[in-house]
Amino acid sequence: MAHGLHELDPETFTTLRITDAEDRIHARLDRPDVRNAIDATMIEELHALCAHLEHDPKILILSGTDPDPATGRPGVFASGADIGQLRERRRDDALRGVNSTAFDRLAKLPMPVIAALDGYALGGGAELAWAADFRLGTPELTVGQPETSLGIIPAAGALWRLRELAGEPLAKEILLAGRILDAEEARTHGLINAIHPAEELLDAAHALADRIARQDPLAVRISKQVFSLPREAHPQVDNLAQAILFESEAKFDRMQAFLDRKKARSTRRSEATSPETSPAQTSGDHT
């Protein structure tokens, strides 16, 4: 499979189904026969997707396979890495960070990433979800890191992201004792933001994307970058970032629009309570 440096042709993808809109891209993991196991081709296509979004920043929604009522097949995000391929990987593959490089690149995309999770999000599938900025789940969601049961570690981000997301005690249960969480447990511990019925999951993801899209894109991009920096960089980096935004046209336009709306509301209130306005006019009684 060949992709141009920045171009995005959905027809050339085989493991992802891409829907490209004006302010967002929706990428569905699409290997349903193997519960969306993450293989080398999917990693290559995630890199191609990231290359495009680095050049043309948009919100990214990641989801898996929808439930199929006709066959009774449940929805699934990703059941993990492709074990057949994983078994054959050796030392040099690990040192190249096959999955970790792609997931880290996804986490650093300019605009936010929303993961819509249904069914299994295990192993590499969970690590892909941890790399997102937001995670929404269904009641059927199951998340965990079973790597140590297979004689390996979760080396694509879980060993450090889980501590940040859920705290050390729970992270160690998941990583060292193989604890698997259901949706409510994951939400309680902050691993997912909200739970939605499967049929409403993508609508909820798009509603969240709509809220993000209403913000100033540059302010969102800079907020995401500054948020990810270590404590030692603050507050100096905040001041520098604010200095950039204080000179942006969007800042002046959006603040002026806010002031105009505030003035209009104040004018309407003044007119509604003016002594010159008759009781019939203020009440809307036109008898």
Results as ranks from 00 to 15, higher is better:
198 A>H: 04
83 I>V: 06
68 D>L: 06
153 I>E: 09
128 L>S: 14
101 T>H: 03
47 H>C: 11
189 H>R: 07
237 V>H: 14
118 D>F: 03
192 I>Q: 09
105 R>P: 02
12 T>Y: 14
73 R>L: 10
129 A>I: 05
110 P>F: 13
159 L>K: 04
57 P>K: 03
240 L>G: 14
74 P>I: 04
128 L>V: 13
85 Q>P: 05
23 D>L: 01
150 L>D: 08
13 F>G: 02
128 L>Q: 12
70 A>R: 05
268 R>F: 15
100 S>N: 05
51 A>M: 04
78 A>S: 11
181 L>A: 14
78 A>Y: 03
10 P>E: 11
41 T>S: 13
234 H>N: 10
197 P>R: 04
250 A>W: 08
251 K>D: 13
156 A>D: 06
232 E>A: 15
151 G>N: 03
88 E>M: 13
109 L>H: 00
162 L>N: 12
176 L>D: 10
130 W>G: 07
2 A>F: 13
126 A>N: 12
170 L>H: 04
60 L>Q: 00
90 R>A: 12
57 P>C: 02
2 A>K: 11
109 L>E: 01
81 A>H: 10
157 G>L: 07
59 I>N: 10
63 S>H: 07
177 A>T: 05
39 D>N: 15
221 R>I: 05
78 A>D: 05
60 L>T: 00
262 K>C: 10
200 E>L: 10
19 T>E: 08
70 A>S: 09
242 Q>A: 15
210 D>G: 03
131 A>C: 07
166 A>S: 10
256 Q>T: 07
131 A>I: 03
198 A>R: 02
169 P>N: 03
241 A>D: 09
228 S>N: 10
139 P>N: 04
60 L>V: 00
108 K>Y: 15
8 L>Q: 03
39 D>S: 10
141 L>K: 03
64 G>L: 02
76 V>F: 13
31 R>Q: 14
270 S>N: 08
279 P>W: 09
258 F>L: 05
276 E>V: 06
54 E>H: 08
103 F>N: 07
74 P>C: 12
244 I>Q: 04
139 P>E: 01
73 R>F: 15
142 T>Y: 15
274 S>R: 09
251 K>E: 15
22 E>F: 12
186 A>C: 03
130 W>M: 13
67 P>H: 13
46 L>M: 07
170 L>M: 06
113 V>M: 13
220 V>W: 14
261 R>W: 12
89 R>W: 11
253 D>A: 15
134 F>Y: 15
249 E>R: 07
227 F>L: 08
184 E>D: 14
31 R>K: 13
53 L>M: 01
5 L>R: 07
269 R>W: 14
247 E>D: 11
188 T>M: 09
88 E>F: 14
266 S>H: 14
30 D>A: 11
179 R>L: 12
187 R>N: 09
182 D>N: 14
135 R>D: 00
135 R>I: 00
252 F>W: 11
140 E>W: 10
16 L>C: 01
198 A>E: 09
174 I>Y: 09
